[in-house]
Amino acid sequence: MATRDSMDNLMQQVEDTIRYAEEQYKQSSLQEQYNDDGYTNALQQLEQTYQDICKLAHSANPQQREQLHRMRLQIQQLQNSMIIEVH
């Protein structure tokens, strides 16, 4: 079973990553190609966070796995939006 601290830390990481990626997504729509580094960095952070969620899911109980699954979906949705965005 994943510890409460590890779940809390990951939840904070997910929130921070999503907030940063959304900010980069908004900035990219305003600045177009001028924000390539931040945009790319945000995509990399999303992918790393996704991988971290997958790793923790292996040691999670059913309730935690459900919560991790919802986090994974949020990350994937934002990744898809950012990839589809003509940048």
Rank of each mutant, 00 (worst) to 15 (best):
13 Q>R: 08
35 N>R: 07
66 E>K: 15
83 I>K: 10
59 S>Y: 11
13 Q>V: 03
46 L>Y: 06
47 E>N: 12
10 L>W: 04
46 L>N: 07
14 V>Y: 01
68 L>S: 00
57 A>W: 00
65 R>K: 13
31 Q>R: 12
71 M>E: 07
40 T>V: 09
64 Q>N: 00
73 L>P: 02
36 D>Q: 10
16 D>L: 00
86 V>S: 14
53 I>G: 03
21 A>P: 06
81 S>D: 08
53 I>F: 02
37 D>W: 05
65 R>F: 03
69 H>S: 12
73 L>E: 13
72 R>L: 06
60 A>H: 00
84 I>Y: 13
49 T>I: 01
23 E>G: 12
84 I>T: 12
47 E>S: 06
71 M>D: 07
54 C>V: 11
56 L>H: 03
43 L>V: 14
6 S>R: 07
25 Y>H: 10
32 E>A: 14
35 N>F: 09
3 T>C: 01
57 A>V: 00
30 L>I: 13
51 Q>S: 03
84 I>P: 04
22 E>Q: 10
60 A>Q: 02
14 V>I: 01
8 D>G: 07
68 L>Q: 02
43 L>M: 11
15 E>D: 09
7 M>P: 05
73 L>M: 14
23 E>T: 15
61 N>A: 02
81 S>N: 11
5 D>L: 06
44 Q>D: 11
52 D>L: 00
7 M>A: 04
55 K>F: 02
21 A>F: 02
25 Y>Q: 08
20 Y>S: 03
63 Q>F: 04
62 P>V: 04
47 E>F: 09
10 L>V: 05
30 L>M: 12
33 Q>T: 12
15 E>G: 04
77 Q>T: 11
8 D>E: 10
83 I>G: 10
45 Q>E: 10
54 C>N: 08
80 N>D: 08
7 M>R: 00
60 A>V: 00
53 I>E: 01
12 Q>W: 13
80 N>G: 09
5 D>K: 14
63 Q>I: 06
29 S>K: 14
57 A>L: 00
55 K>G: 03
27 Q>G: 14
1 M>S: 12
8 D>W: 08
56 L>K: 01
13 Q>G: 04
84 I>G: 09
28 S>K: 08
16 D>H: 02
1 M>D: 15
26 K>G: 09
22 E>C: 09
54 C>R: 08
27 Q>M: 15
63 Q>Y: 05
36 D>P: 15
7 M>H: 03
53 I>Y: 00
50 Y>K: 08
23 E>V: 12
71 M>W: 07
20 Y>P: 00
11 M>E: 13
27 Q>T: 11
87 H>N: 15
82 M>A: 07
29 S>Y: 12
73 L>V: 09
5 D>W: 08
42 A>K: 00
65 R>Q: 09
46 L>V: 05
68 L>W: 01
76 Q>F: 06
85 E>W: 05
70 R>M: 11
1 M>L: 10
85 E>Y: 13
71 M>H: 13
78 L>S: 12
67 Q>T: 03
48 Q>L: 07
8 D>P: 15
32 E>Y: 09
35 N>L: 13
33 Q>P: 13
5 D>R: 14
47 E>I: 06
87 H>M: 14
28 S>V: 10
59 S>M: 11
57 A>R: 04
44 Q>R: 13
41 N>H: 05
42 A>E: 02
66 E>V: 11
68 L>E: 02
74 Q>L: 10
41 N>E: 06
